[in-house]
Amino acid sequence: MKKDTVLFVDDEEINLFLFEKTFERDFEVLTALSGLEGLEKLKENEKRIKVVISDMRMPSMNGLEFVEKVKKNFVEIECFILTGYGHNKELEAAVENNLIDRLFSKPFDYDSIKNAIGISSRGS
C-alpha cells in the first residue's frame, strides 16, 4: 500500500531527523527547516502531501503564520501544530476557528500523531 506523505517543519535539524526516523516506516516524510522552505516543498509536492505538521517557535515565520499561508494556498491539506508552550490563547483560538486541525504538545507522542495522520488521510 502506498504510504501517505506528510511534511514536517521545524527549525531544528535534529528534530527533523528524529521525526523522519520515527515515522519513516509509517509514512513518507518530507522535511523543511523553515516556513518558507515548507511552502516551497508544498508547491513541488502539492498533490501528494496530505498533512503538514509544524513547530510553533521558528524564526522569521512562526508555526501559526505558516499554517495560515498553507490554508490559504492549499485548501485540502490538514495542518497540525506542535508546541512546547502548552496552552496558549492564540493557539486555542486558532483551533476553534479551524485554522489548525490538531494541536500537539512537545515532546510528541508517536501513537497520537500516527493516529491523527491516519484519520486525516482517511478523511480526504
Binding site: 535534529i14 528534530n15 528524529l18 520515527t22 512546547g84 515532546p107
Partner: peptide, 17 residues
C-alpha cells in the same frame, strides 16, 4: 524550562530510536 525542553526532546527522540 523552555530552553531545556528542546535538548531534552533530542535526547528523548534519540534514545527512543
Amino acid at each position: 524550562a523552555h530552553e531545556i525542553n528542546n535538548p531534552l526532546n533530542f535526547i528523548k527522540g534519540g534514545i527512543g530510536m
